[in-house]
Amino acid sequence: MEFQDRLAALATKVSNQAAAIGTEEATKNAFVMPFISSILGYDVFDPLEVVPEFTADVGIKKGEKIDYAIMREGEVQILIECKASTGAPKIEHASQLYRYFATTNARIAALTNGVIWQFFTDLDAPNRMDAKPFLVLDLLDIDDTLITEVQKLSKASFDLESIISSAEELKYVGALKREIAGQFREPSDEWIKFFAQRVYEGSYTQRVREQFTALVTKASRQFLTESVNDRLKTALGAGVSVRSEAGDAGAVTSGPVAQGDLDRDTEVETTLEELEGYQIVKAIACGETKPQRVTHRDAKSYFAVLLDDNNRKPIARLHFNGRQKYLGLLDEQKTEVRHAIDELDEIYSHADAIRAAVIRYR
Rank of each mutant, 00 (worst) to 15 (best):
D5N: 06
L7F: 07
A8Q: 14
A8V: 14
A8W: 10
L10D: 05
K13M: 12
V14L: 02
N16L: 11
T23A: 06
E25L: 14
K28M: 05
K28L: 00
I36H: 01
S37I: 03
S37L: 12
L40F: 02
Y68N: 03
A69E: 03
A69H: 05
M71E: 08
L79V: 00
A84C: 01
A88V: 15
A88P: 11
K90Y: 10
H93L: 11
H93W: 02
H93P: 03
R99A: 14
Y100A: 06
F101K: 01
A106L: 00
A106H: 00
I108C: 00
A109N: 03
T112I: 10
G114W: 00
V115M: 07
F119N: 00
F120R: 09
T121P: 02
D122F: 00
D124N: 13
K132Q: 11
P133L: 02
T148G: 09
E149K: 11
Q151G: 00
L153Y: 02
L153C: 03
S154K: 04
I163R: 02
I164A: 03
E168G: 03
E168K: 14
E169T: 11
K177W: 05
K177P: 05
R178P: 01
A181Y: 10
F184R: 06
R185T: 08
K193P: 02
S203R: 11
T205E: 11
R207N: 13
R209M: 11
Q211H: 15
F223H: 15
D230N: 07
T234V: 05
L236T: 15
A238V: 08
S241I: 12
A246L: 14
G250K: 01
T253Q: 13
A258E: 11
Q259C: 01
Q259M: 14
G260Q: 09
V268C: 05
L272Q: 11
E273M: 10
E274N: 05
Q279C: 06
I280D: 00
V294F: 03
H296V: 10
F303N: 01
A304S: 15
L307T: 06
D308P: 06
Q324G: 11
L329V: 10
D331P: 07
T335W: 04
A340G: 10
I341K: 00
D345R: 08
E346F: 00
I347C: 09
Y348R: 14
S349V: 06
H350Q: 06
D352S: 13
A353T: 09
A353W: 09
I354N: 08
R355G: 06
A356I: 09
Y361L: 06
